[in-house]
């Protein structure tokens, strides 16, 4: 069966959209981290800078999975590896 380039591009766009769904996980995770950090600052306002830096570090590490999804989407959309 022959597929033309436009069909493959359309499917790549759908795939890119599906890959970006990976952003749900880091979104929820970062929200939970930020919520707990807010609670920690509320309990101990003196440790605000320590809590903030720890939260940012943890959030950046948690973000990685979402970024992998983003990379896959960008490869599909702009590098177009599937178009012969």
């Amino acid at each position: 069966m022959e597929f033309n380039d436009k069909f493959i591009l359309g499917c790549s766009a759908i795939g890119a959209g599906l890959a970006v769904i990976a952003g749900i996980g880091p979104g929820v995770g970062q929200g939970i981290a930020a919520g707990h950090a807010a609670a920690a600052v509320g309990r101990n306002p003196g440790a605000k800078s320590d809590v903030t830096s720890t939260m940012l570090l943890g959030q950046a590490v948690a973000e990685t999975t979402g970024l992998y999804g983003l990379l896959v989407a960008m490869l599909l959309m702009f590098v177009k590896p599937l178009v012969g």
């Binding site: 990685t64 990379l71 960008m74």
Partner: peptide, 16 residues
Amino acid sequence: ISISLRLFANVLSGTV
């Protein structure tokens, strides 16, 4: 790999 991809993807997403 993870440490470099993290920096790369974050900056690239902003650029794009």
